[in-house]
Design a protein around this nucleic acid. Structure first.
Lengths: 196, 196, 196, 196
DNA sequence: TATGAATGAGCGTTCATTCAT
DNA sequence: TATGAATGAACGCTCATTCAT
């Protein structure tokens, strides 16, 4: 691992744990075991480093999600696989995932960070979900629902459970799989409450 | 409004917008139109002020939720009313609600804040939800589900939509009511997919 | 002397000796025997302090020159008194005068300093000289010369000798009075070289 | 032009515009289009580079002045030719001349620069002027004046006008030729104010 | 010759906090 | 109650310098 890569990983850790403002460049340098001057040398300002750290994580997750939903029989299964892949990724990256909770339009952008760039990057997550929902409604696996809101609600559901799992002391073993069930139950087309 | 109250409101605004670290005591004093010395005089340290601001908001929301769920015919209706009251509160307090997103165990605690106190305070929100879910399972309005996980998932659902509405540029008019529908569909006991 | 005044005097000393870039805020605070935080408290940024220090010195010199030329029998005498007052002022303020050599449009403006403000302030020095030269040409005590250029040349003459006296190791006792003679000889109206 | 020469020219530009402290080695390297490591390789420390840049300019000006005064009929004419050559040189080198205003005993030496070396180098300019004044007094073209002071005053006159022309916004077309006239009028031996 | 990775001293500035008034 | 003068730790950042390649 090059020193540049070490700095990026350390930044993901530090920003994830402490947030943009509270994390310090010296702290990042210390975690990466390099001098703090090298951080500026490679990444410029603290803001630039924050975005680099967040976008690196986002890009890898986007990749992982795209793979997961690539070959699905139907939209509802795509949603299930999207969520499974999302939760699997957070579990694998427990130490450094929180940077994505920070560098996200669903969090308060800390002062000095370019919120527009972040929102653009994250629209990929929502767009992918919208694609799955649309597909599901078309193929009949998902009931008729407003696509935009539903995608946002599902994403909120995912992030809510990730936050519960990574941040709170209310942790619960089965929360990820229960969240998938919760969403699937809500979306699934089928004999309705007023039905039979 | 006394100066002490003005400081508390100003703190909710400032911490909500900027976060604990980035907001400054001078900024709070400026918003309240008092000298910065008075802030220490009434609230002690910055940390104490942060907790005071967050807990004031939390207490008022807890009150509002307790009222809303007080006289419900069944557990599912309680959930619906809990969510309605929650969303109504966030709409009423748009300017100062974000302090609750910051001063919450579902967010990263900023360094120096006593996370245990915050978690204790917030368990009231989860406990109230657990009570509703249990009641609903007992009275048959909610399908049989693990109480702990379900309460956490619902709370995550609520906060996810609040975040989407208050923080992101992906705002969508009907997201609050759709979120309620989403949850109710998922919880409602009734003829199942494998049913009929 | 208040601490604010002490900081201003210390800034004049430090900036005068070391220049804007090389002088440090900590150094100024040390000379004034106050904490460095107090410098920002009273004067804001280093740039603001530099201008405050330079303009204070300039204002006092402008006052002194205006007094000196107030009641002159003729323009040439005004010039002589302007120069005498200028040199007297530099002698009195030897320790702190160099700030005026730094905070002057006749010096390189250091990066970050608002050159326009400085040039506006200093036009008072040139305008006063132009007034004297014009008066002298009118009353016949000064030969016919281009007013603008002559004023600038005299000012250059003055500053040249001040620099020689304050900065170089070529110091010479009589340089100030000889400079006055030099200028008066050059301006004086009278039997000319082509005359008799 | 070799890279070494390019660095020297770039240093004259950068130090002239920004001063020793504010100019950076990286900036010099950028202007010369070489890597910053090469600057140290050829010139050692920043101080050494500053002196090299200033002395190169000084040596070329000294050469030019010596040529100009070489074959003069009398001392007063030598002075005129010295000044003409000086002003011509500054016009030719407008972009890089300011290094000489910085690297000069008539300016504040920036901390770290060896003021003694600079003063020694510059005594050549004063000595040449003293030679001309002495010669003029001997041959009768210049009135009887203290040689040391007069040379310093003339040099101050020259530099004052160069500063006015290169640095201030008070620029005036004819200032150089008027400065020569000013000096010649003041030095010229002839029918005096005390009469024919 | 020529490059730039790597270091760390030192800069201007911000800001929570204390305390005399 | 209410103010703001005063302090100094800690921040992000710049930059001269060294050195392996």
């Amino acid at each position: 691992m090059t020193k540049k890569e070490a700095i990026l990983k350390a930044a993901q850790e530090a920003f994830g744990q402490l947030g943009f403002t509270a994390a310090t460049v010296k702290d990042v340098a210390g975690r990466a075991d390099v001098s703090f001057g090298l951080v500026s040398h490679y990444f410029g300002s603290k803001q630039d480093l924050f975005l680099a750290a967040g976008f690196d994580m986002a890009d890898r997750l986007i990749c992982s999600l795209a793979e997961a939903t690539a070959e699905s029989p139907d939209g509802l299964t795509s949603i299930r696989q999207y969520m499974s892949a999302y939760f699997a990724f957070t579990d694998e990256q427990r130490d450094r995932f929180p940077i994505l909770l920070r560098c996200s339009p669903f969090s308060h952008m800390e002062p000095g960070i370019d919120a527009v760039k972040v929102a653009e990057k994250f629209s990929a997550f929502i767009d992918e979900l919208k694609r799955c929902v649309s597909q599901g409604i078309e193929d009949g696996s998902i009931r008729t629902l407003p696509v935009e809101e539903t995608a946002l609600i599902i994403y909120g559901n995912i992030v809510g459970s990730v936050r519960t799992s990574l941040l709170t002391p209310y942790k619960s073993e089965g929360i990820f799989s229960e969240t998938i069930n919760h969403v699937i139950r809500s979306l699934k087309n089928g004999p309705d409450q007023d039905g039979c």
